[in-house]
Amino acid sequence: MTTFDHLTSALELASTTPERFVGHAAVEPDRLVENRFVIDALLDAPAPSRLERVLRRVGVADLTVPLVTATPALRRGWLAAVGVASLFALSAARNSTAEGFDRLQLFLAVAPLVPLLGVALAFGPSSDPAHETVVAAPVDAFRVFVIRATTVLAASIVAMAAVTVLLPGEGVARVAWLLPALAVTSAASALSTRLDTRVASAVVAAVWLAFVVVVTSASGAEATFGAGVQWTSALITAVGVAIVVTRRRSFDVLAGSST
């Protein structure tokens, strides 16, 4: 029997038959029962998740850890999207022919949608059942949005960067999805100040895919991910961030409720 087992057994006995301890100068039954409650609380407390332990180990602030681990997007839908995009990459990697190059274009078109999907599932009433509780809390809802969007964006980029090494081709062409990914995520975040995050993300995804189809049809695949699009993506990212920061108070109440 360990010391801890011995202690809990003694407390169990004290709490069920306190009269047996009356008269013992060193033992106060009420205090023993109270102590048992404290020990029960410690025993009942669920073990922190692996993600929580990692976040604490790398020094993430105490109040931020639960906000990250509760991110709804860290779940199946988004992980499935990462998986699908990875399959595109693996498929492209096995075909370095002209067909494979087409598949690379397909990967570049799909990859920006992965972080976009993550952000769509990270915040808002249609994705987070506890959204109204978030809004009613003193923690700045904009901060919660930024923490969650950054979490899924960072995780998406790391995942997609990992599969990028499997892609055919050389140089910057393989990471041509990165700036468009930031641009669509930023644009969706900006739209989220007016619309539900999921609706905003769907609109932006539709616009992005339409853009890819139209530009590829008209000017060829290279134009879709060329320097012009990269610069435009950087500009959209900056404008989107500026809009989000300017309208940060819109996250503070339920969407569609303000004047």
Partner: peptide, 16 residues
């Protein structure tokens, strides 16, 4: 427990 910890964080209760 995780949910109450989460709402506690939203209410700025610290430390864990």
């Amino acid at each position: 427990g995780a949910y109450l910890d989460y709402v506690g964080a939203l209410k700025e209760l610290t430390p864990a």
